[in-house]
Write a protein that binds this DNA or RNA. Structure first.
Lengths: 228, 228
DNA sequence: CTCTGCTATAACGTATACATTAAATTTCAC
DNA sequence: GTGAAATTTAATGTATACGTTATAGCAGAG
């Protein structure tokens, strides 16, 4: 089924479709950082009027993906090393609490099946050297963790900042060393959750994100990638 | 100078004014929880057309203050005890990290002056039994702390959830015991920051928010305030 | 009296119109 | 040739128009 047909059947509004399409183009680097696009042009490119475009842009602006400037259209916000640090600091706080909370809830192995599946996919992807697949599984792992933890506000906020650095993560994916430690972290985190050890789960995740923060900000600086 | 005139001079858009006014009415309980207001009615009440109202509502919806339902207008979102817990969990993570970060930066006493001023105001307010003044100083303290910490994303997120529970905090303010412990916490937190002891500052703030969470959720449940 | 189906109303989603104003361009004086 | 002022252009902010569709009210059958 095509996306357009599905939208028709589900009565998805034009605003929603516009929002999703612009977001897709930003995260997929079709609209690269610092690119400026006028409302008119967006409307024309997407085949809608300015109204849905404007409403979509407000959402994207709130999510920190674009900035809307009075007469210069939207601008795709780039990520600097400092931004990377700030985002990972937020993730460190929120996700480690999510892990702690999930562990304290003592979920069954059945409930954790999708999470374990994501870890296995990551390990397979790394063995076969498929970095894109690894990144997809990694994202899935972190999304699942937030979802399972059960604090919707916490989850939404973590996902918002996570989306902000998606592009930058994709770029660093191929200049960073292979994420072996990362896989070990995920495996250990699942173990701690299964053991119901909240403090341990939180600490593993905190260290996991802390390492990632140091690595990524270091990489961005070393390669002079100040605006990703 | 009147607000309207100031807006004129500063060229504040109608969307901004509309947004601020609706938010003010929600936080001030002029629009109480669960109230439904149609776009048309809002536009009429605020003396603007539906366009700025719609754009303001999108922002308010993203901030979790209202829900926009297709043909029933906006609905002011109420806060349940579970919501309170979720919000305070987020605050516990983010604000304690802000405190830690600020302490690690070893700010001068001069830089902390506004923060110290807020603590003193809280103490004065409590002595004279002025709860509203106490609440205002308390809010100011937490806003300043977030601002001084220097992670804008972290600050914005904490403030967003803080606004979500503003109404509920105002209600509980008069049924809770006097916030003496709270004042001690703030004083101790400033001390830890001045000492440059990040771990201590984080732990004090974590404990502070944890106590508040337990107290407030307990109060809401005991008084059967399931939808504030 | 109750339930079903029709009709009418009205709220919304989207497109468009229009006035405003910032930016760009041109003109003109020097 | 250069700079300032005036003019033009065009992007936006806001209002309005219009078609769609959900909801409520009403009628009629059972």
């Amino acid at each position: 089924m095509t996306a357009a047909l599905q939208d028709k059947l589900q009565r998805v509004s034009l605003v929603d479709r516009t929002y999703r399409e612009i977001k897709r183009r930003i995260m997929g680097n079709v609209y690269p950082p610092n690119l400026r696009v006028l409302e008119q042009d967006l409307a024309h490119q997407l085949g809608v009027s300015r109204t849905p475009v404007r409403e979509a842009l407000i959402r994207l602006q709130n999510e920190g993906l674009v900035e809307v400037q009075p007469r210069r259209g939207m601008r795709v916000i780039p990520i600097s090393p400092d931004d990377m640090r700030d985002v990972y600091e937020v993730l460190m706080c929120l996700e480690s609490r999510a892990a702690e909370r999930l562990a304290e809830r003592r979920p069954s192995k059945t409930e954790l099946r999708p999470l374990i599946g994501a870890v296995e996919d990551m390990e397979r992807a790394l063995e076969s050297g498929d970095l894109d697949s690894w990144a997809e599984s990694d994202e899935r792992f972190h999304r699942l963790l937030l979802e399972l933890a059960g604090n919707s506000r916490l989850a939404a906020m973590a996902l918002t900042v996570f989306d902000q650095v998606h592009r930058a993560r994709m770029v660093t994916l191929r200049i960073r060393p292979l994420p072996r430690q990362s896989n070990r972290d995920h495996r250990a985190l699942v173990e701690a959750i299964l053991e119901g050890d909240g403090r341990k789960a939180a600490e593993i995740h905190r260290a996991h994100r802390h390492r990632a923060m140091l690595l990524l900000t270091e990489l961005l600086k070393r390669y002079n990638l100040s605006e990703l």
